[in-house]
Amino acid sequence: MPKISQKGQLMPESPIRKLVPFAEQAYKNGKTVYHLNIGQPDIKTPELALDAIRVHSLDILAYTRSEGSEGYRKKIAAYYAKNDIHVDHDDIIVTTGGSEALLFTFGSIMDTDDEIIIPEPFYANYNGFSTASNINVVPVISKIEDNFALPAIEEFEKLITPKTKAILICNPGNPTGYLYSKEEIQKLAKIVIKHDLFLIADEVYREFVYDGNAFYSIMQEESLKNHAIMIDSVSKRYSMCGARIGYMVSRNKEVIKTAMKFAQARLSPPTLAQIASEAALDTPQSYFDDVIAEYTERRNLLIQELEKIEGVKVAKPKGAFYCIAELPIKNADAFAQWLLESFDINDETVMVAPAGGFYSTKGVGNNQIRIAYVLKKESLIKAVGILKEALKVYKD
């Protein structure tokens, strides 16, 4: 029998999706499952984005330019300018989701066995993208006791080798909800300039910032002109995960020129999704005001309820719509599966994402879960209540 590749064997399973078969079986058994496991917003997609698809006048669903249509990229640049991020439309490549933007970035700046430093816990698919790109993740651990703040710069410097090519952050963070301050971004800027590295920032949750805090993009740091690569996406901003439209943005002309080769190899991003995403850029500020107000209430309620559970430790998010909770258990994978297979209250149970998959350091995060607060407040209260009762009877 032909053999599977080593790379294929090393590709990690998604900690978010690997429990889906157990959830499906729970549904077949007549249970209601409250999904705290996946960042699929329940906020409605802006109508103007949906209308743009409904009323399009295309006769042929043709390719667009490999870098995305020029008109769309000009509107993206105008959106960024409103957010004090000043780039030209030629600094932007439209991609099939933020995932492809990351793959283009890795392919453009790193060779086999090169290293990328990432504060962990981090978005689980960074592990998969790194494996697919034949590069190595070097983690620097941030701690729940510090609310997952940026580790000391000295910790980064200890890890830099001749193989190090970049530092990657997610800001605001998935899975932690941590928001990096301007001061923290400037500390990272100094270290990447000092060691001639790239700083990659996944900024797809830019709009989701709470408590009057200010978001600061790496693209606002002028010293990073040739070092900064921003990853972006419409998925969470406009509740358009299925559009699969993202952006790779950099003022470094060589980076964009190189990434264009990857863009050309896959021909073009999806045409209809670009039409919808371009229309979404006209979404009024009132939409985001309402969304932020809703998520702030959900976050406050979630943290309040989790803190009532004995033995649970939780970090308070400043952005995005996730939090990490540490539970009084040994193995969150086993606990998450048990919740779906063996526990319910009146035929209702909860699906969570074990946090071990958001680390690359073995054995770290095994007693943690990621919670996405993308449910209505009433459902959040029910879900946390089920979690509380489950922890009372669960045995590792």
Rank of each mutant, 00 (worst) to 15 (best):
F358I: 01
P172Q: 06
N252W: 11
I231V: 11
I117V: 06
D344T: 09
T176E: 09
Y247M: 13
G8L: 12
A243Y: 14
A273H: 11
Y63R: 12
T45M: 09
V140A: 09
H227Y: 13
Y205V: 00
V312H: 01
L50H: 07
E67Y: 02
L50R: 01
G385D: 08
Q304M: 07
G128W: 12
A101S: 13
I309C: 04
A390W: 01
L267T: 12
A166R: 14
S239R: 04
A280S: 09
F148V: 08
E183N: 13
Y126Q: 07
S233T: 13
G365M: 04
S217A: 01
V234Y: 11
I303E: 02
P15H: 10
A293Q: 05
L188P: 00
P269G: 10
K28A: 10
I85A: 02
A259K: 03
I92T: 03
S217K: 02
P284K: 06
A276I: 04
I144P: 07
Y80C: 12
D282N: 13
K253L: 07
D202I: 01
A49D: 06
A101D: 08
K395T: 11
A152I: 05
Q40K: 15
E67W: 01
P46E: 01
S250G: 04
F148D: 11
T296K: 10
K82S: 14
G39H: 09
L103P: 06
D51S: 12
E120W: 02
V393K: 08
D289M: 04
V255W: 05
E221M: 04
K308F: 00
I93G: 09
D347W: 03
Y80N: 04
M260H: 01
V140T: 10
I324H: 07
Y210Q: 03
A320Y: 02
Y373R: 06
V94S: 13
